[in-house]
Design a protein around this nucleic acid. Structure first.
Lengths: 215, 215, 215, 215
DNA sequence: GATGAATGAGTGTTCATTCAT
DNA sequence: CATGAATGAACACTCATTCAT
């Protein structure tokens, strides 16, 4: 729980959350990611959080409000820094090769990613059904990231490190490969033993060189 | 509707479905894929199908039963043939190069895939929450496909067409790339104009050669 | 089942019952007496009887019809003979003493009573809730029996065998004692070992001499 | 209604019942005893109680819970005092003769019994179908009462007031006679005019001396 | 005569939300 | 602020009954 609380503070610290609010958020994340948003009842969240049912609605006008208040900061607070911090390093030529950039990005975000996995899962699950979420996502992620990423990609393309292909396609292929790994790893086959470092390596190798054998 | 009916017949033909049953299935697929399984009520399905609510439960004991009866045939009827028909062609050396195999597989399944997309969407959405579904999926797909695919992959690896990498990893990377494309194409950004043929080509190229530039 | 079938024939023989009808009756008796009339569904009866749901309603217009068709013959066919046969024997002075009459009546009806217990249980359970049943019961039993019994009782009273008390009260006390025994024996404490003969003896003794010690 | 409210308070006073809870209980008792537990719907109770249907389920998890919460106190609160208060008086030799004991017991409980009759009716009706009820009944009544009653009976037997017969049989005969009277009086023939005092007298006389004439 | 698909009102129960305390 | 009783619409599901086959 205290592990989760840290995550909560990382995601939600700026707005001052009361103790009860934190408990509600933690409980909601747990339930939403386990059973899905629609299949989770507010009373269940209240019970798990140890607060009265009414308390939830004092802080969040509706259930959907609660969902948004969980998922929105993920997009604004989490993705933002990645783009700004990490990408700037790339733009500052700190990584000569794409591999190194990818590796570094994944590496120093892995722990955070795993911690955030429940929230990411909620986000991915609900994006198809919540127009507000989709729009928020498109504004915050798709556009911002693609904008930045395009520059990076173009940079590497100019250096001859990446093939000529519209940056959006490059981004799509790279990102879905990484998310595909996470999906297989943590949602489809969580019970299998994974050598995470090796499999990350392979995923990066795949992104860079594909499956075809070089002769 | 008649388009959808064709799909229904393709997926469900063996069991003789009554007229009302078909209408229920069509309505359920539409609603489940639009709003999600949990957020769809049986009364809504009944209204959309133009039948009494009781009629649903005469044919499907529970709501979950209805979900399974929609999604299960997708796995047994759809994936089966792909494995058996297409893969046999590969084993029979009809495709010399992996590219050709991938292309042919995607190409002649594309229409079906698009038609089945709502059902696929339902499947992907509910797998994380329905243990029965996950198990069914693992039995029907993961195991059967990986078994077959391993042979094919090993074959190409022996021919020097594919890099040395455990077949499971190869399969995972290839498959998630394809599904990632479909997810981006039809779920995340369905409103963007896509040049499907070109993007398929790129996805295959990516799978084969990655993003790194050959010099 | 063949045991029960005999009972069915005894109760229902005159009207010619089809095979299916018999099965319905047997199933209904079993379910009604196990779970009560209201808590038993017609579909359940149909399943237990091995007939289609519609078949029940071909023979019995409504569920209540089915109930009445089970319980009514108990009153007309069962109680009738007791009154006519046995009571006539008493009137014919075949039993000098009340004890002997009671003993003989209970004795040679015991097996039948036990077999009919499920139906009796249904009758007792539903009398408070079904006005039709209550009226039928009052007409068939209360009035007919009390009429006859009054004569018998008056006879024994004149012989000085019974105390002076209005015959209705005498009848009530005697009958509830016997039914109270059956209720304790078969409904409240069926799992206890009972010495039936002894306990019947005691019940009769109680009816005749009460609990007070003669000095 | 205010009459019934008194009853409610007598049965349920210890737990503090809200106003709505009382109304629900009163309505449930009325409906259950009029139509039986299974034939009564929760919506009907809600309507009669003037509360929302959801309110019932806030206080009682299930419909059966409501039944138990009505019937259980009858056993613990009603029967308990009888056993403790009245029986102690007997043990304290306050009643020399069994008749006096029986008379006093019935007399000073009659009003309460009549008020509780609806609840008693529910109890008697549902005992055959609700295993929980039967067990509760056996624990609370059968065992506790028989234990106490045995002592009393043995006491009177030693004094030569009661015949030699196993105390359980004595208890069964006495109790079913009293209940048989109540059943005839209030359930089977409530519409007939009864001289209650006289009929109670007769029932006691019957229990003590039976129907046989002393010469 | 027998079937079982079809019905729609009704079942017990849960829901998100409100509001007096 | 926080509570939890209260709500009534909605929920998944069952019911007795009908009727075309």
């Amino acid at each position: 729980m205290s592990e989760e609380e840290l995550l909560i503070q990382q995601l939600f610290d700026e707005e001052k959350l009361t103790d009860k609010q934190k408990k509600i958020i933690v409980a909601a994340i747990e339930s939403f990611s386990e059973k899905g948003y629609s299949a989770t009842s507010t009373s269940e969240i209240a019970k798990k959080a140890g607060v009265a049912e009414g308390t939830i609605f004092r802080h969040y006008k509706t259930k959907k409000d609660l969902l948004l208040s969980i998922v929105a900061p993920l997009m604004t607070k989490m993705i933002g820094p990645i783009v700004v911090n990490d990408f700037n390093k790339v733009l500052d030529r700190q990584y000569d090769r794409v591999e190194d950039f990818l590796k570094a990005t994944i590496e120093n975000r892995r722990e955070l990613l795993i911690k955030l996995l429940p929230v990411i899962k909620i986000l991915l699950q609900e994006i198809p059904f919540q127009p507000e979420l989709r729009e928020l996502f498109l504004e915050q992620i798709a556009n911002k990231i693609f904008e930045r990423v395009s520059i990076i990609i173009k940079g590497y393309q100019e250096k001859g490190e990446l093939i000529e292909m519209p940056p959006e396609s490059v981004a799509r292929l790279a990102i879905t490969s990484i998310l595909g790994y996470l999906f297989s790893r943590y949602i489809l086959f969580p019970h299998i033993e994974w050598d995470d470092e090796l499999e990350t390596e392979r995923t990066i190798q795949f992104i860079m060189h594909g499956l075809g054998k070089k002769e």
